[in-house]
Design a protein around this nucleic acid. Sequence first.
DNA 1: TATTGTTATACTCTATAACTATA
DNA 2: TATAGTTATAGAGTATAACAATA
Lengths: 170, 170
Amino acid sequence: MVRRDAQRRDGGVDLGPLPRLTGYALRRAQLSVFADFIRTVGPVGLTPAQYSALLLIEANPGCTQSAIATALGVKKANFVGLLDALDRRGLTRRIRSAADRRSHALTLTAKGEDLLRTASAAQQRHERRMMARLGAREHNCLLALLAKLTKADTPRADGGAVRRTRSVSG
Amino acid sequence: MVRRDAQRRDGGVDLGPLPRLTGYALRRAQLSVFADFIRTVGPVGLTPAQYSALLLIEANPGCTQSAIATALGVKKANFVGLLDALDRRGLTRRIRSAADRRSHALTLTAKGEDLLRTASAAQQRHERRMMARLGAREHNCLLALLAKLTKADTPRADGGAVRRTRSVSG
DNA sequence: TATTGTTATACTCTATAACTATA
DNA sequence: TATAGTTATAGAGTATAACAATA
């Protein structure tokens, strides 16, 4: 019963140890799930990043740009353009804070709330499809494992401070 | 016992339903795992993409560029630069195929095999650390779930053919 | 001095089209 | 006519530095 499991193939090529590497398996799964998300929620007019930004603004009305950006794991500098696009479409609004006039209080407009509702309906169809790939119990198990895997590290975006990550190019 | 689980916070902001979205949880976990990979294997001189390319070439000596690129889920056009970098460093070699003179047979050089061995030692330290975050049994479970989640879809890179994915910008 | 939002910039990834040389 | 490798290019995503306004 010696199962040759280093023999998994993809279009005729031996994948070797690749499918057993945690990072590689995560990357493939993530791309697969995002592809379905984009097919399902994309037609509403939102990318995954935009959808998650709207969700966070809805859950934290009046919150600051930096706070949302950090929670999303996005640099504040890169969050500006993302917000600009939502603002331009009249989905969100930036309001100068009275307490601290450097910062913006973010809110959804009525139009933003409407679109978010539509997007969330699509998102739920997507989510149900992902759950169907695994079954409810195993899907729940997956989410727990992913949270556990993430918890240990993940000091990302601006809030992260000291972590260096020095990219290796070439 | 009504657990308010829409109340998970990150630096003072309510994450709402975000942590329960499969795609979002996958993205965060993947970034966390890749960050550890880069810290551990990066100093050897390989990115995750380069490491996986070397693994595939080692497992399929003489294989064609398109075959490797497709198996990795990379467009053949984008694989050229990746291979160029490895070739320039003397880790891989492209040999014109005698049978079909359009294609290249890819192989590792002795230097490439050496570096891959060093990288794999580092990769195993990384992998053990990821396993330690979950425990051996649960880590195994995670890999099984990810494979199941990926299997259903994933028609990526050049081989994918008809799939469109139309990106949503703005 | 430090922080918020911003601009500018650069580097990586990814996607598409078009070319060449072979088939 | 189709395929393998290549080039060029454009779009996202992400990283850093620096600036104005405000604290």
